[in-house]
């Protein structure tokens, strides 16, 4: 699946390490966790995450974009993965919503599972968030990115990022304590 690669602006050049020429395989090895993690939290199941993971690096491989710095390359991969995951969601619904005449029913897709109950609860709470909150929280908690960096990547103002972080945390807290007070 061809993915819309995000145009990365000058502001992404933060004066970090210069981009070494890496072949695609090396880039995969260095960034596969980052890309795959974004894919998982934005598509929720392994099958789709696998597709997104492959599509992003294949697109990278075909485009061979030039990067001014390592940060630049990382930014390209992050925004491309988020876009790709979003497209995956949309196209999968297109195939689902169209009523079919044949009764072919294959196995239903399986949600991504973690090792402990707390991790699964956290994942469920995270994926229940609106997409715009999810991206911000993922980049903040899983990638440890500073707010200004997140703002640059997602083309938002810093105050919007801060607001989504705090609101997202509130929503997640509500989700996580939901079952606690049930009778």
């Amino acid at each position: 699946m061809e993915v819309e690669a995000q145009r990365v602006t000058d502001s992404d050049v933060s004066g970090e390490t210069a981009a070494e020429p890496l072949d695609t395989q090396a880039v995969v090895v260095r960034y596969e966790s980052m890309v795959y993690a974004i894919a998982v939290t934005h598509t929720q199941c392994r099958g789709d995450a696998d597709d997104v993971f492959q599509d992003v690096f294949l697109t990278y491989h075909r485009r061979q974009p030039e990067f001014r710095s390592e940060e630049h390359r990382k930014a390209w991969l992050i925004t491309t993965t988020i876009n790709c995951a979003r497209q995956a969601a949309r196209s999968s619904w297109r195939t689902r919503v169209v009523p079919l005449t044949t009764g072919a029913v294959d196995a239903a897709p399986v949600q991504f599972e973690f090792a402990t109950i707390e991790q699964n609860a956290l994942f469920a709470a995270l994926t229940a968030l609106p997409a715009s909150y999810r991206s911000v929280l993922h980049l903040f908690y899983f990638e440890d990115l500073p707010i200004l960096r997140i703002a640059e990547l997602l083309e938002l103002t810093a105050s919007t990022v801060k607001m989504r972080l705090s609101r997202g945390r509130v929503l997640m807290r509500e989700q996580l304590t939901q079952g606690v007070f049930d009778d």
Partner: peptide, 9 residues
């Protein structure tokens, strides 16, 4: 994804 056509008719 083998589940593409899993919606009932």
């Amino acid at each position: 994804r083998g589940w593409v056509r899993w919606l009932a008719p």
